[in-house]
C-alpha cells in the first residue's frame, strides 16, 4: 500500500517545480486542459499557487454537448481559483475529419479528440506565451492509459510521480471540491466511459499492485503471494510492457558517431 504522505511537503515540491521550470524556460504563464476531473483540477490548483491565478490558463474543450456536467465542474474549479478560462468546442474540427473518414470505433474517435485538444493547447501556448502543463498521473503513465501525443503531450508534468490514489489525497489537502474528488475517473473518450470499467480493475487495487511491482521492485509471484489477484497482476505487467513506447522517444537507427537519443547527451534543463 502506498504509504501515507505529507501533502504539504508534496505541495511545496510540486509548486516549486512548476515555478522554477517556468522561470528557467522564461515563461511567466502556464496553460492546461481542464476536464472537470481530478487530475487536471489538482494541476490547476498547484499552478494557481505556484504562478498566481492570473498567470494560469485553463482551456475547457468539450465535444459538443457530450460532457455538459464536466464542463460545469471545470468552470467551477476555474472560477474558484480565479484563473483565465476559455471554452472551445472541438466538435466542428473532429466532425469535419470524421465526415471524410467515418468510423464506428469509439477508441479512434476518442484518440482523435484527445489529439485535437492537444493541438489547441499548443496553439494557445504559443498565442499566450504559456507553457503546457501535463496532467498524466503515475498510474496512467505506467500502464500506458493515455493517448500518445494527445493528453500525454506537455512540456512539464507535475503529477507524473503520483498514483491516482495519491492525487486524490493531495486534492483533499489542496481543497479541491469533494464533488470532483469523488468523481468516477474517466478519460472522456466517449460518453459513459469510466477508466476503471475500461481497465477492468479499480485504481485503488491497480495502484497497490503497481506500488509493489514498481516502487518496491517485487517480482510478480511475490505480489500474487501477498494476496493480489493473479490475473490482475499479470494484466498490469502486460500493460506496462506494451506501453513502454509511450514513455520513450522513438528510436533512431544509429549511423554516425554521435546520434540524437544515443550519445548526444544533454539535460532537458540545458543552459537554464
Amino acid at each position: 500500500m502506498p504509504k501515507k504522505f505529507n501533502p504539504s511537503f508534496v505541495e511545496k515540491v510540486l509548486t516549486s517545480f512548476i515555478k522554477e521550470e517556468l522561470s528557467k524556460f522564461h515563461f511567466r504563464k502556464g496553460i492546461l486542459g481542464l476536464s472537470g476531473g481530478l487530475d487536471s483540477s489538482v494541476c490547476a490548483f498547484l499552478a494557481a499557487k505556484a504562478l498566481k491565478p492570473e498567470n494560469v490558463w485553463g482551456l475547457i474543450m468539450p465535444y459538443g454537448q457530450l460532457f455538459k456536467k464536466d464542463v460545469k465542474d471545470a468552470q467551477t474549479v476555474g472560477h474558484h481559483l480565479g484563473i483565465q478560462l476559455k471554452v472551445i468546442d472541438i466538435s466542428p474540427m473532429v466532425d469535419a475529419y470524421f465526415s471524410q473518414h467515418p468510423t464506428q470505433d469509439k477508441l479512434l474517435k476518442g484518440n482523435k479528440m484527445a489529439r485535437e485538444r492537444m493541438s489547441i493547447l499548443y496553439d494557445f501556448s504559443a498565442r499566450e506565451n504559456a507553457l503546457v502543463l501535463g496532467t498524466s498521473n503515475k498510474s496512467e503513465l505506467l500502464v500506458g492509459y493515455g493517448t500518445l501525443y494527445g493528453d500525454m503531450a506537455c512540456s512539464i508534468n507535475p503529477l507524473g510521480d503520483l498514483y491516482k490514489s495519491q492525487i486524490r489525497e493531495l486534492a483533499s489537502h489542496l481543497g479541491v471540491p469533494e464533488k470532483i474528488r469523488k468523481k468516477n475517473p474517466t478519460a472522456g473518450l466517449w460518453s459513459g466511459q469510466t477508466d476503471e470499467k475500461e481497465l477492468g480493475l479499480s485504481y485503488d487495487e491497480m495502484d497497490e499492485i503497481l506500488f509493489h511491482l514498481v516502487d518496491k521492485r517485487r517480482p510478480a509471484k511475490d505480489v500474487v503471494w501477498m494476496g493480489f489477484n493473479k490475473d490482475h497482476v499479470e494484466k498490469i505487467i502486460r500493460m506496462i510492457k506494451k506501453s513502454e513506447f509511450k514513455r520513450k522517444l522513438p528510436p533512431i537507427p544509429k549511423l554516425s558517431n554521435r546520434t540524437v537519443g544515443h550519445d548526444f547527451l544533454y539535460p532537458y534543463d540545458w543552459d537554464k
Binding site: 504509504k3 504522505f5 511537503f9
Partner: peptide
Amino acid sequence: PGRGFDSREG
C-alpha cells in the same frame, strides 16, 4: 536528489 516521500517533512 530527494527520493521517497512519507509522512515526514522532507
